[in-house]
Amino acid sequence: MKLGYYPGCSLKGSSFEYEVSLLEMLKVLGMGIKEIPDWNCCGASTAHSINHNLAIALPARNLAIAEKEGYDSIVAPCAACSNRLKTARHELKTDEALRKKIVNSLEMPYGAGMEVNNMLEFLINVAGKDRIKSKVKKQLKNLKVASYYGCLLVRPPKIMRFDDSEEPVTMDELVALTGAQPVDYSYKTECCGAINSLSKPDVVMALTGKVLYDIKNHGADAVVVACPLCHSNLDVRQREIERKYAEKIGLPVLFITELIGLSFGISPKALAIDGHMVAADKVLKKINEGQ
């Protein structure tokens, strides 16, 4: 099976830990992925608020390359990237006139094919729970982990067609595979404020703050995410939020790939866990105590 990998900008920059941990995890799983050659930006949240055609053409180019390379499916770990790629594919599949127009402007053939997986879909549907379970060496028994889905992973349901868009459970299932205890809480799919982090940080702090305090009140030791922007808001903004609301949070925010990597026995250093703003020392200690 030929798997393509669309990293997007975040995984090469601010969220390099996500890529590092993904590749380490895949080594253990014995799965190879190939980065799509000459990939370009998916347009993220900017393109589609300005120009619809551009917002479709940018991801479509990546899909067209993937199609040409002959991949069976691709994985886009970033929630926004996978969302844009899937949306473009959906629109081009259902609107033949638009497809012709986009293909024309891309000067590349694209038949509106190519399966796109976000990180959760990839882990559940491509890697498979059994395979993941079979590689778990360290049961993360002591750990209580809250899964934060944010808004883009499972929405809109018509395009994503994955999990329950309002009450998702797949990330919790993955957490359970590592031996950790999934923590149920109320704000699983609330928005973290996303890209407003740059223009309206107050809004982001209010939204992210609600999520973090709710997770803390439900007794979690750590949060897992599958989206670089969620990660950055929950992790990088955490200290500021603590200051603003004058209440300590102290919740390490891990990528789902890092949590799985830890359960595979990969060293935290190799997973780049030391790259986060909120130190994960306590969590790592708890894991080791549980062994």
Partner: peptide, 9 residues
């Protein structure tokens, strides 16, 4: 069908 309303939960 409405996970957000928590019926059953």
């Amino acid at each position: 069908l409405y996970g957000e309303y928590g019926y059953g939960k």
